[in-house]
Write a protein that binds this DNA or RNA. Structure first.
Lengths: 231, 231
DNA sequence: AGCTGTTTGACCCAATTTTGACCCTGGCAA
DNA sequence: TTGCCAGGGTCAAAATTGGGTCAAACAGCT
């Protein structure tokens, strides 16, 4: 059975091109020209993948994304003309799974579609050993236990959530928004201040020299990165 | 399988000549006599390369270029009678990959076609590993990590956006305008000064000899080019 | 109330970005 | 040839934005 894709884009050219391109590759394609129409078709057609343009008159891509995400976990790929990281981040914050900037090659889009579908079909695979250890820091994510230089360190719930999110994405920048939406919830995406305080507290607990952090590093204007040689 | 090329030109002789010339070299050729017809055929035929005359009645080459670029990254080679640099820059701004002025030799055109196709085939393979590496420079765009001669190099957000745009368009001139609109936003399209400073900073971070840049090269009056043998 | 955890505000310091002054180069007209 | 000019590079100051710190306020709990 072929996979059903819904394309929401206000530009007729793109709709046509994508329809033809996907159909040639064995997908079934539904089209919508506006956000409203798209939300309707989402409910009626129940596609397995959504391709969504950000810039649209009326309900824009961000809003469509949010509304869809309020009731569906269908994979979403977002299209945008801009390369700016802010747009990328905002789209991912709204729940998009992938982001591709126009202009794009049909081949690239197809590859991303395959990747996203593959991911969505596989149930979340769990980590082999939920224990992190480097230097004198040891974190057992399962047991919620943290040791620093042999001593037990107590973490508050928020600190623990933050740390576990960071450790599960080692050496990768997690944006302020990503951290906030995943630890606090999407409605707190703007409260950077609180995040800073919690990061500071966390550093004071797990860093040997909190002023020159080894694990939790700041990427100014972007987010934080948990660096570790063990990955 | 042979490569499909779409030629959009209002002059019948040129269409004929190009069709014959390309077919002799094993390409499949589609023809369109107007911008409208060309846009239609783009969507229907999904060619792998577009050759486009600038001067056409109705929708002109610039406009066709812009419209195609709103959804496709297919390589575009622009033909023009004029040698004016203004046109060249404008064509590149509209998203053209290369520019050739009439009259031109068939051999030269074929060479440029080959060059442009070689470039466009590459991005597909790098999808799984979004890591660029050449010499002692290593860039992981996903993780936002850059290594130069083994050391971690820290990039600011703007530097990272710039580098990422450049690496995603290797061996191709990106005009000042393109860089500015995509990294800063359309409203900053004229502020070349800031761009120069950021490029200089980037060079200082990733070039072995910033005064004789290997990766980021200046195209005077036009823009910058990221050169790499790996594409 | 007392305890813990979280948010908020005030303040200062640091990173990033923009801007301005100046230099160098290649092209070109006098 | 000289001298000028435009475009680009360089450097550092200025402006802007963001992050760290500390403590007080607040919210939930028992």
């Amino acid at each position: 059975m072929s996979t059903k894709i819904l394309v929401i884009d206000d530009e007729p050219q793109i709709r046509r091109a994508l329809k033809i391109g996907f159909e040639r590759n064995g997908y079934e394609v539904q089209l919508a020209a506006t956000g409203e129409e798209g939300l309707d078709k989402m409910a009626v057609e129940m596609p397995e993948l959504l391709i969504l343009d950000l810039a649209m008159p009326g309900i824009d891509g961000f809003e469509v994304c949010r509304q869809v995400r309020s009731w569906s976990s269908i994979p979403i790929i977002v299209l945008s003309v801009r390369e700016r990281e802010e747009d990328k981040i905002q789209a991912l914050d709204c729940g998009a799974d992938d982001f591709i900037s126009k202009p794009f090659g049909v081949g690239e889009l197809l590859a991303r579609v395959r990747a996203v579908l593959r991911r969505s079909k596989q149930p979340e695979k769990t980590l082999g050993t939920p224990i992190f250890s480097e230097g004198d820091l040891e974190v057992d994510l399962d047991k919620r236990l943290v040791h620093k230089a042999g001593d037990v360190v107590h973490l508050t719930p928020k600190e623990y959530d933050l740390l576990s999110l960071l450790i599960n994405n080692p050496n990768r920048v997690l944006t302020h928004r990503q951290l906030l939406t995943r630890v606090w919830g999407p409605e707190y995406a703007e409260d950077h201040h609180s995040l800073r305080v919690h990061i500071a507290n966390l550093r004071n607990k797990i860093e040997t020299d909190p002023a020159r952090p080894h694990f939790i590093q700041t990427e100014t204007r972007v987010g934080y990165r948990f660096t570790s040689k063990n990955f």
